[in-house]
Design a protein around this nucleic acid. Structure first.
Length: 501
RNA sequence: GGCGCUAUCGUCUAGCUUGGUCUAGGACACGGGGCCUUCAAUCCCGGAACAUGGGUUCAAAUCCCAUUAGCGCCA
């Protein structure tokens, strides 16, 4: 904290998310982004988004767009980066090649880095030899002290080369906010390659330069980068740059406890949107993967997460991505929404992903909202709505007639029940056709019948199936109210006709 | 192979800094039950963990050491 070499900013901490657009934006990136965002907002800092697209073969514009879209969906807004100008751009590494070149040249001139002309075959042979002798497989340092003329000559000849760092023999220690003191013996690492050429810097080098120039004060990233950290610190030291604070987040794991990947069936973030998950639930779930606030409260929106967030409470061990837990978070968040909010979200979901968006045109918002209100307790995901409530939006429903049979009934008894239902329904005035009235009407009727009083299912189960066509649905009275008198009667009649056929 | 990180219920975790209040708390999932016309929601109950072995101490999930296992990085 008091290290004078730690970068300081007058405007609070500066953090960054620095993904490579070489694949669909996944939950690991999203979680890292979320933690950076929460930290920045909590501390009044700045969240920078930097696109590490130096790998020209694998980087694709569509991946980058997918990433921006994912971040926007979550509400994890960056302050500087693509689409948002800042004073520390450009924010694409591909636009910063000239900058890296300068620093690379400086290291070369100062003799802190050197050209290496060893061939892959030579390196492979060296490595095997080292391993065979039980030593750490590191570069031998063969080209470390090549005479200047030789280097110039080789370069002029166009001999393939890379740029290596002259790794000092020392122990690097750094204080990780999450893990405490971590130390590495550089002697075991060897002279690492920092660039393929002056125009092609490698990850470890570009990161250091960017973090410095973008005045990053806190590097919050995945634990898989912890082994890169000593190399990056050495580069900082050789260049005379400050070292930021580091916080290495635990990994998100698959069910087999290895790093979560598509191998586990993990999908891009937009797939979760497609499945009907809410961004609030995703944030809540992701935040709780490796972090936990004080107390027993579990359901938090973004604002509340910001308020409670504390890097010091981040877990050290990896956390398995368990979708059932996400389901629960989603159901809980769904229940916090008002009917109007749900109507908007479900409407948008249907418009974007459903093959049958016409229910929005064919039914009034009031009607749809009533259905939503009724179905909310059953919803886990937005997509469930269509599945559970389709019978409200179909002119003609159909179902196997066996569904109509209550467990204590014989099939020949069903028509009687349905006819009784019809009689009750018909007696209710159109204007009073609401749940309360329907319910009292039925209960009055039931109280007059010894058979129904003993076993209400004999009357109500066939009615419910006639109205919904499903084995599982909300209760018959609330369905009937929404359907209306006419449609309810029509459906009971339809059930009767099914039994005759 | 080397180095590094990690280790509490099946899962996410609280507790560990400042040993005793921990016969280890919560949540998800699971099982059972209540409500009940089904499903869901909801409520109640239940099983379920300090990786192992040594220390230190009157006392250890908590401190120290070793071991084991898992993962990550390096090519």
């Amino acid at each position: 904290m008091n290290d004078p070499k730690t970068p300081q900013s007058l405007f609070g901490p500066r953090v960054r998310l620095a993904p490579s657009p070489t694949g669909w934006f996944h939950v690991g990136n999203a979680r890292t982004g979320l933690f950076n965002y929460l930290f920045a907002r909590k501390t009044g800092g700045t969240f920078v988004l930097r696109v590490e697209d130096t790998d020209k073969e694998r980087s694709k514009k569509e991946y980058e767009e997918n990433m921006l879209e994912g971040l926007k969906w979550l509400g994890v807004e960056w302050d500087e980066g693509p689409e948002k100008d800042g004073s520390f751009g450009p924010y694409h590494q591909s636009d910063r090649i000239e900058i890296y070149k300068e620093y690379l040249s400086q290291l070369l001139e100062e003799g802190k880095a050197y050209y290496c002309f060893c061939t892959p075959e030579e390196l492979e042979a060296q490595r095997e030899d080292m391993i065979a002798r039980g030593m750490p497989p590191k570069y031998s340092g063969k080209c470390r002290d090549l005479p200047e003329n030789t280097v110039k000559e080789y370069l002029a000849q166009g001999k393939p080369s890379v740029i290596r760092l002259k790794m000092p023999k020392k122990v690097i220690k750094f204080n990780d906010i999450i893990r405490g003191e971590v130390e590495f013996n550089l002697d075991l690492i060897g002279d690492t390659v920092i660039a393929k050429s002056l125009d092609e810097p490698l990850y470890n080098f570009a990161v250091v330069i960017d973090d410095y120039l973008m005045k990053i004060t806190h590097v919050i990233r995945g634990e898989d980068h912890i082994s890169n950290t000593p190399k990056q610190i050495v580069i900082q030291e050789l260049l005379g740059l400050p070292t930021p604070n580091y916080a290495h987040l635990p990994m998100i794991l698959g069910p087999d406890r290895s790093k979560l990947s598509s191998r586990h069936g993990a999908m891009g973030l937009n797939e979760y949107k497609k499945m009907g998950y809410l961004p609030e639930a995703m944030n809540n779930f992701l935040a709780f993967l490796g972090w936990h606030p004080l107390g027993d409260k579990e359901i938090f929106n973004l604002e509340e997460l910001i308020d409670k967030f504390d890097l010091n409470r981040v877990q050290k061990g990896g956390a398995i991505f368990e979708i059932k837990r996400l389901d629960w978070f989603n159901a809980q968040h769904l229940k916090t929404l008002s009917v109007d909010q749900l109507f908007d979200k479900i409407g948008e979901y249907i418009k974007t992903f459903s093959k049958t968006p016409k229910i929005l045109d064919n039914y009034s918002p009031e009607y749809i909202k009533k259905v939503i209100e009724l179905e909310t307790p059953r919803l886990t995901k937005l997509s469930d709505f269509l599945e559970f409530s389709e019978f409200f939006f179909q002119e003609n429903i159909d179902y196997p007639k066996e569904y109509l049979k209550w467990k204590t009934m014989e099939e020949i008894e069903i028509p009687t029940s349905l006819k009784d239902c019809l009689a009750v329904l018909e007696k209710i005035p159109e204007k009073e056709f609401n749940k309360a009235k329907i319910e009292t009407s039925f209960y009055n009727f039931i109280s007059e019948s010894y058979l129904y009083k003993k076993d209400k299912g004999r009357l109500l189960w066939p009615l419910r199936v006639a109205l919904s066509g499903k084995k599982a649905s909300p209760g018959p009275f609330e369905i009937a109210e929404i359907l209306g008198k006419e449609e309810s009667i029509k459906r009971v009649n339809f059930a009767l006709s099914k039994l005759n056929s």
